[in-house]
Design a protein around this nucleic acid. Structure first.
Lengths: 229, 229
DNA sequence: TGCCGTGACTGTACGGTGTAAAGTTTCAGC
DNA sequence: GCTGAAACTTTACACCGTACAGTCACGGCA
């Protein structure tokens, strides 16, 4: 009585790539908390411990899928038009982060960054430098842009609504435990702004991105002038 | 043979406030993963299940300590000088987030925001409106500022170094698995910029914040003009 | 052909997690 | 002193990451 009841001997052996692709899919489908070693093994038709032959621990798996995510970000072009390059790359990064919301808190905290991660950082610095930024200005621009983009993705991450109808319901639920009139500005914001037809918080992203690009251009072309008179 | 070996009957009963203060301390000391119901109970001299008399589940405890964190943020002043108000409040928020790094991912995703949370949002909108911003502009400014501030705290959250010496060691460790010259721009950035004495990534925050405030002022005072010629 | 080492995977176990459900203690008010 | 509710404990379950030992297939070699 052997135990190989199905798929007699045709089983495809595991590989790092297959494991990572499956892990990425699991995380995308159900979030980080649904990516356990047991579920991952089950998805691959294997016991959880089999994964430990290919990865030292779960954190190495996370390292791997985070680097897959980094690989999805559009590489900024090299050349004088840094503003277009940064704008395209910024929108790409936002798209990637919203596609893999579970990754937002992990991207910038890896102790073992993978090649896609390092390569992307390298390309960003190279792009800004090729446009004439000195190292300090490149650092300012990079920090400002990525703080904004990651922050936007983070604050949008768990917004539990997609439509203005959802917003109304959610806002009502949130304010319900409190006496009416307790938060007049917030109430006005919801009724006068967030519930207006056609409102989409996602539109805020490019507005803010352009303000930042404009601001970078100003301090880049007039580096001596202090911003506050 | 009773089990009350120590502290015979003087035990202070639990309260929501005491539980939340203890939970906040635990999270501050060891991060979110060290805040378990058992450890929290143990810290209070009580079994874990005792906490469920006061809170429906762990998420309600998180709701509570997140609202404590919101309570630490400086309320923006009302009046025409929105730029000073937003600058002070922004720095205060950054300080709070760096004091409670575990909270960064939780602040904007609460389904049951507490009074401090809602009150702060209300005060922010009120401050911007009192300075003359219409609702749409207030939304733009608020989104831009908080995306940047939360994003800065997020990307700085797990930077595993505090000194330039740490940076050098960390960078070497990260680049070690790859052939030298693989990431020339990144290497140049590290040696020419990040390892310079006196470098502190934290300084980037106010630089970026001022660029954003300047940008908001420009689109607020010249709302018709498209930013890109 | 037989053996054996190694690569790939499984089985079992341990200490941890959140929490449902039931049991126990403590104490205020009558 | 009795009663009932408040406050807390006990036990249990399903899940988690992973240490450690066992098992199985198979390629190279005698």
């Amino acid at each position: 009585m052997t135990t190989r009841t199905t798929q007699p001997a045709i089983r495809v052996p595991l590989s790092r790539e297959l494991i990572l692709q499956t892990a990425l899919r699991l995380a995308d489908q159900g979030g980080l908390e649904s990516l356990s070693m047991r579920k991952l093994g089950q998805e691959l038709g294997v016991e959880a411990m089999a994964l430990y032959y290919h990865f030292a621990n779960k954190d190495k798996v996370l390292d791997g899928i985070v680097d897959l995510v980094f690989g999805e970000i559009e590489t900024p072009s090299v050349g004088p038009d840094w503003r277009t390059a940064m704008r395209r790359r910024g929108i790409s990064l936002r798209d990637v982060l919203l596609r893999h919301r579970w990754a937002i808190g992990l991207m910038e905290s890896r102790l073992n960054p993978g090649p896609a991660n390092l390569g992307h950082h390298d390309a960003m610095i190279g792009s800004l430098r090729s446009a004439g930024f000195d190292m300090a200005m490149a650092a300012h621009a990079y920090s400002l842009l990525d703080s904004y983009i990651y922050g936007f993705a983070l604050t949008k991450m768990n917004l539990p609504f997609e439509t203005t109808t959802d917003i109304a319901a959610m806002a009502e639920t949130m304010l319900e435990p409190f006496p009416p009139g307790e938060y007049p500005n917030l109430s006005a914001f919801i009724t006068e702004h967030a519930m207006k037809p056609g409102y989409d918080y996602a539109d805020e992203f490019e507005i803010g991105l352009d303000v930042i690009l404009e601001g970078i251009e100003r301090i880049e072309t007039q580096p001596q002038e202090p911003p506050r008179p």
